[in-house]
Amino acid sequence: MKIRSPRYHRETPQRYRLEAAKTKSGDVYFPPRVYYPGGQTAEPFKMSDTGTVLTFTVIHTPPPEYSDLAPYALGIVELDGGGRITTQIVDVDPAEVKIGMRVKVEFRKIRTEGSEGLLCYGYKVVPE
């Protein structure tokens, strides 16, 4: 599907810099929201680049734009200090990935989009 660049551009604070928001009660929202449950106020919060794998899978049948990467490990990572991301787990044999594994966020190319070949970047994690 053809996706125009404004859509990609507006997510860059999150994809490049893990910019989130933290409410007074300490809940981390990623991405930041227009409104927080209960009408709480929230301050900008940059998430940590280290964390722990909560659960994972190894994708053998990927979406079209990821077909050259398969099989790849992918998991839900809880970052130290709060906030969670769904992300590929790379630079490791997928068979070695485990729940509880410590990981570090790195800035990587994610995919090439559309006939114009827009290069899209973002976060992946590697073993710490």
């Binding site: 991405p31 909560l54 659960t55 992918l74 769904t86 590929q88």
Partner: peptide, 24 residues
């Protein structure tokens, strides 16, 4: 789409992550 799909996860992948968590 932006915060799950962009990572390369699929629907089987999401349920697979639930399965691994349930198994653990």
């Amino acid at each position: 789409t932006e915060y799950e799909g962009y990572s390369g996860v699929t629907f089987p992948g999401l349920y697979a992550m639930m399965a691994n968590a349930h198994m653990a």
